[in-house]
Write a protein that binds this DNA or RNA. Sequence first.
DNA 1: TGTACATCAGTGAACGCGCGTTCACTGATGTAC
DNA 2: TGTACATCAGTGAACGCGCGTTCACTGATGTAC
Lengths: 290, 290
Amino acid sequence: MSAIIRYMSESSGKAAPSIRARVRAEMVDEIKRVARERLAEEGAALSLRAVARDMGMVSSALYRYFPSRDDLLTTLILDAYNSMGEASERGDATVRDRRDLFGRFLATGHAIRDWAVERPHEYALVYGSPVPRYKAPTDTIEPSTRPYAVFAMILADGMAAATARGDGGSGDAGAGAADSGDAVAEAAAGPAFADPPLTDRLAGELHQASMGLNVGPSEGMTGAPPPSGDTPMGPPPVLIARTFAVFTQLFGAISFELFGRLNNVISDRREWYDWQLRSMAAYLGLSPLK
Amino acid sequence: MSAIIRYMSESSGKAAPSIRARVRAEMVDEIKRVARERLAEEGAALSLRAVARDMGMVSSALYRYFPSRDDLLTTLILDAYNSMGEASERGDATVRDRRDLFGRFLATGHAIRDWAVERPHEYALVYGSPVPRYKAPTDTIEPSTRPYAVFAMILADGMAAATARGDGGSGDAGAGAADSGDAVAEAAAGPAFADPPLTDRLAGELHQASMGLNVGPSEGMTGAPPPSGDTPMGPPPVLIARTFAVFTQLFGAISFELFGRLNNVISDRREWYDWQLRSMAAYLGLSPLK
DNA sequence: TGTACATCAGTGAACGCGCGTTCACTGATGTAC
DNA sequence: TGTACATCAGTGAACGCGCGTTCACTGATGTAC
């Protein structure tokens, strides 16, 4: 993939894009569009020749645009991740009142499913069985985390709001919060629910992963200034664990639907997904604004 | 697939299996074994010729055993479902004290994951992206539900025990139970947790699906006789919904692990899965026997 | 118990197909002077 | 503004490959008498 980008920028040069470069870019888009259509027929066994055929070109012509079939596939994967990421971000952004964390969670969750339902084969490409013999380059990792980052941001905003209200909700609202019956801590850590104990190692890795999502509270969430300096503290481990469990559940639900496990079982898939989303929101301690 | 079975039973006749028939059956097993190995290399794009090559045979020889490549694939799928189903059942059966529903839930959950981790490509075959152009015959449906049936049985045993104790826990412990703060109803319906409302249609379909799993309480669970006649009542809709959400989460967790979403994130996958399982158990109102 | 015949497993050649990729080419489009 | 040259997109033939499936065949193994 990076090879293509280099190729393209070389040919377009540093000046304003020439006509040729613009036509070329359109051509690349068209190839990707047709290739995405082919995904429906062939899945990850996408064939260059079939794409060329659909475009009314000879197969060797595609090599002007992509150095190999695998490179085209990588591009599609990268695009899919970014497209899903953007859909998540747009979903979150539709909620006007940024303090409405419950609404944002729901909007983001539905945006991801809507995205997937509209392009099931792209979803399968990135969330289905790994393609045998295909090794995704490492630059697909970061785009793949964009949807998670949106959720992390929503929860970080929740933590920040709780802190601003003096709720606690950071450090001390740890694994014990759910057991303590402390309603105040619950507001940040979720409703009474007995979390299983987390090993230190697991808590550490989850913490590490949540840091990798690179989110602090978004701007303009609270009137209060951000807590001075001590950000490395982060949310309580159990909340991170719940969040990652929710990621699993959310994508599990989409995969169940798109991979056929609801066939002849549930007809209104959106409704069922919505129920699950709301259940996850409750699990995360999010509730509608009063 | 059914074609093969017919073929095989025809050739073996009605008398005691002849030597030829036994050798033939062993040959079929060997082909399937080798084919399962090939799955690792080629995924669902399994090639007959490759299987023959690995067996040191000529490709046309396989047609003595399987009428077509698709038929071999169907056999593998069917075997995978049954094998996973048996693993679930064996997992549940390892728990001596049948009243220990929490232990049975955990054992079954781990049995499914253990099965999948040992044969990731078989798991991908049935729980990964649908194979393009391949239509699974309808006789794969029933075997695919065996793991769900095990969980359903565990919960049915829980309902039966609650009923025998006079806990309620059937009919009236419906959607409102979690909100009511009634600790007795909670024992059957799970801990305090605000379930989202279920539409009638969804509740109906979920109920229908749970009936499809064909489980009543297993024998010898309670001293009390089964409730007279009125079995069609079944568990409260919200408990069914939670159960199906748990199915989604459980297989979602396995898919996340096997399809690479935990790479460079979590190293002790069993531990993380265990945490999630325990969390699901709590969600279903299951707790360790005191 | 021995012979004649039927059944069956496995072979090897062949079919028609689609695939990814390379290569020399032609003609159109852009760039430099 | 017009000409000479360089760049580039797309063609068409060819490469070597692997695939699923069919078919006539050859021996070996089983069955009936």
